[in-house]
Amino acid sequence: MPNARIHLHRGDLPEGLSLGPVVAVDTETMGLNPHRDRLCLVQLSAGDGTAHLVQIVPPRLGGTGADCPRLRALLADPGTVKIFHFARFDLAILRHALGVDAAPVRCTKVAAKLVRTFTDRHGLRDLCRELLGVEISKQQQTSDWGAAELTTEQLAYAASDVLHLHALWERLEGLLRREERLELAEACFRFLPHRAALDLLGYSEPDIFDH
């Protein structure tokens, strides 16, 4: 979305902001270990071409850390559906860092794996290209998200991860209905917060569902 609007908020969402009943959500962290690597950014979009980025700064660096009541309330609101891509990780880091269980959820990665069994390309970039005809860049994926000042390139990258999730879920939901797997997908989505909780307890390896 070349004309996307990006708003950066330090510490919490602004008072009075409404993002509607379905919100796309993503996170940026210092790494992929929720116990070790801190949460730095939470991105949200109502699917209207606008992204709201909440920078999470720990108290030791002058921020308010997990004291973000408006963000936490939105994530925990049972009346707001949250769309993620690879929700398993995001749900774990949000639970560990903010003490919030984000539900109900939809996960475009899980949905893609259920219906796109003809390919092993289930990354967000691949899905956006193949289902939406949209090219997104992953160049900033491994940049330093803990920096006090994020670059314009970082903000654009972070926003791109949520700006297309509504449209992507719409396409994938249609495929799930076509292949009669929507009910199965919804059962998977209900389980995802529990899967994230298992990961935080150390049950990602060995996986209790393995033989």
Rank of each mutant, 00 (worst) to 15 (best):
R116Y: 03
L132C: 13
K109D: 05
P104Y: 07
T117S: 09
T119I: 15
P104H: 12
L131K: 09
L124A: 12
V134R: 05
V100S: 14
K109V: 15
L132P: 01
L131A: 13
F118D: 14
L132T: 02
C107N: 14
E130G: 06
G133W: 12
A111S: 08
V100F: 09
R106M: 06
A112P: 02
D120G: 11
D126W: 06
T119H: 10
R129M: 03
V134W: 07
L124N: 07
G133E: 12
V134S: 12
R106Q: 13
T119G: 09
F118V: 14
L132K: 06
R121N: 10
D101I: 14
R106Y: 10
E130V: 07
A102T: 15
R121W: 12
R129E: 10
L114A: 08
R106C: 06
A103C: 06
D120A: 13
K113Y: 01
A111W: 01
T108Y: 02
D120V: 13
P104W: 03
G123I: 02
R116C: 08
K113V: 06
V115I: 13
D120Q: 15
L132N: 06
D126Y: 05
R106T: 03
T108Q: 01
G133D: 09
R129C: 14
A102Y: 06
V115L: 09
R125Y: 05
L127A: 02
V100A: 15
K109T: 11
L131C: 13
A103T: 11
E130N: 08
G133V: 07
L127D: 00
G133I: 09
R125W: 04
E130T: 11
C128L: 11
R129L: 11
C107W: 05
C128D: 02
R121H: 13
A103I: 11
D120S: 15
F118R: 04
V100H: 13
L131Q: 13
K109L: 15
A103H: 08
A112K: 00
D126E: 15
G123E: 05
G123Q: 03
K113M: 15
L127I: 09
R116V: 10
D126I: 00
L131P: 02
F118H: 12
R129I: 03
D101G: 12
H122S: 15
L124Q: 05
V110G: 00
V105D: 00
C128F: 02
T108F: 02
V105M: 04
R116H: 04
E130C: 05
V110I: 14
T108V: 13
R129Q: 15
L127F: 05
C107R: 00
P104N: 15
T119Y: 12
C107T: 14
D101Y: 06
